[in-house]
Write a protein that binds this DNA or RNA. Structure first.
Lengths: 303, 303
DNA sequence: TTTCCTTACGCCTATCGTAAGCATA
DNA sequence: TATGCTTACGATAGGCGTAAGGAAA
């Protein structure tokens, strides 16, 4: 098989149509250039150039081969540049794990930020439950997970992505709906749609903690795992609940959201990204760096 | 810059993920393979493989580069195969010159036959007058010309492509139109739309010869160069004329065609292709060979 | 006779293979 | 301790440059 150096020789001769000038361009003398062209022709299996002492011209096969040869050199160039861009994190792939619950708002937002910051990085999205995400991270099957705290594995690193406060959600027409904001006390003894302690552990703990610290004991009528299910049950009049402020973006009909009057701002709903500490994906490193920069510049304190 | 041999080394290692096995596949020993991979990484400017004593794996840049590398090897293969196909005439280009008059029927027919015989050969069509075609042939600007005889240049070779008889053409409603066929004698003294001796020399000579040999002297009322113009003038009642039988495919309204009763079959209308004898376009050679084979197999004597 | 591609030949660089080194599980 | 990638080093092959050869205008 031929070599790229021979391709460069051939392109030079084909462009100059003169072995002497081509050799000068290649910083070599004519004889070895002639030899390389002969070797190339032998490898291709057909003459590429017609030469007499007065004229050098391409054969039809040479004309076609010239086109392919230029493409080959271009491809070789871009292969190098592409690899460097991947090594520097400007291009490449990031595999992102996410839960079904984050697919409505958080994943699109993260994807949009990635695309804006690193337009040449390909995102591979994989939906899986939180535990599977952490395992996939450790196994290197994904680079980044979108999960709620806490993350206890020492090989993994959690970084905050979004903090938001809780709101009370209640059915339209509920007596409390007339109040501009709702005190936690008002929840004492009312029917309450609660998060599942198994499948929505984070929200169960968060809401339980808030209610316990306020000394409030609502009546838990249901245990559900998805915020959408909470909205549906609240709308159906089965009770009130607490949901993250971002839930309002769904414009869910039949329910109203109200601020909580006396919610302490030190335990908001948190969502973060988790990465493996020794992940060596340059695109991921760059994304984390860009996100941190961007976040430091734009994000004020959120509650 | 790197060489294709290094690319082959890299692909082997990337596929085996084991230097020893890759070296065996490449019929070499590990140490020089390691060295070639190092040289390649240096040329690319970034590590492509992560290796410890226990594991070899691709870096993100290596993964991207592997994709490009495979493409390079594929392109190199196809470049060789393509060049060979061009050299053998199975692919390539044929530049064809043709006159405006042949563009209606003869060019499409020739193009269709070329495409059927040599589907991977690209046809470049260039409309020009006959004299320009012959000059372009000699200069190598076109490979094949579609012209009527004679071609006198010794460097050029004429080959018959189509032979067809002449028909009389007369306006609808003309007294002769009731006859099933027309004797040449009947043309004596009638108004006759004649071909231009300058711009339609071939037809002028052909028709003049036929009329002279029959001892018939029609009255030449017009001298035109294009057959379409003849049809228009005949239709307008300016006279009769003689045209090639193929003219009937135009389904021209207002004129009728009649066989000539006593036309000798030895001087039909001829159309041929002309090529330069020392043309070295393999696709052209193959086309001529295929055409000859096909013609010998299918074409009976035409008049 | 001149131009310029090719062949011939000696030198040298670069690659290969063998052997030793060294890190990891 | 064994596996397996890397470094070291001597041998060899292939490419380069100089010099001579040969065909066409």
């Amino acid at each position: 098989m031929f070599e790229l150096s021979q391709i460069r020789c051939f392109v030079a001769v084909a462009e100059e149509l003169h072995f002497g000038k081509a050799a000068a361009r290649l910083n070599m003398t004519q004889p070895p250039l002639s030899r390389q062209i002969q070797l190339l022709e032998h490898a291709v299996g057909t003459p590429l150039l017609f030469r007499s002492t007065r004229v050098v011209e391409l054969t039809p096969a040479g004309r076609r081969f010239l086109h392919e040869a230029r493409g080959l050199l271009r491809s070789a160039e871009t292969a190098v540049l592409d690899a460097r861009r991947v090594a520097q994190g400007h291009a490449g792939e990031i595999a992102i794990g996410f839960t079904a619950g984050s697919s409505y708002r958080d994943v699109p937002e993260l994807v949009a930020r990635c695309r804006a910051l690193l337009p040449d990085v390909n995102l591979k999205l994989r939906e899986m439950v939180s535990q599977a995400q952490l395992e996939a991270l450790l196994a290197g099957r994904i680079d980044l997970a979108l999960v709620r705290p806490p993350v206890v594995q020492p090989a993994l690193q959690w970084r905050p992505l979004r903090r938001e406060r809780l709101l009370a959600v209640l059915p339209q027409g509920h007596p409390y709906a007339e109040r501009p904001c709702i005190a936690l006390d008002a929840l004492d003894g009312v029917d309450f749609v609660m998060y599942s302690p198994d499948e929505a552990r984070y929200f169960y703990d968060l809401v339980s903690d808030i209610l316990r610290r306020a000394g409030v004991r609502p009546r838990h009528v249901q245990y559900v795992s998805q915020i959408h299910t909470i909205l549906a049950l609240v709308r159906a009049g089965l009770g009130l609940s607490l949901v993250p402020a971002g839930t309002t973006v769904f414009h869910y009909e039949g329910v109203v959201f109200r601020e909580l009057a006396d919610l302490r701002p030190d335990n908001p709903v948190e969502l973060g990204i988790v990465v493996k500490r020794d992940n060596d994906n340059p695109a991921l490193s760059r994304l984390l760096g860009e996100l941190a920069l961007h976040q430091a510049a734009t994000a004020g304190p959120q509650a």
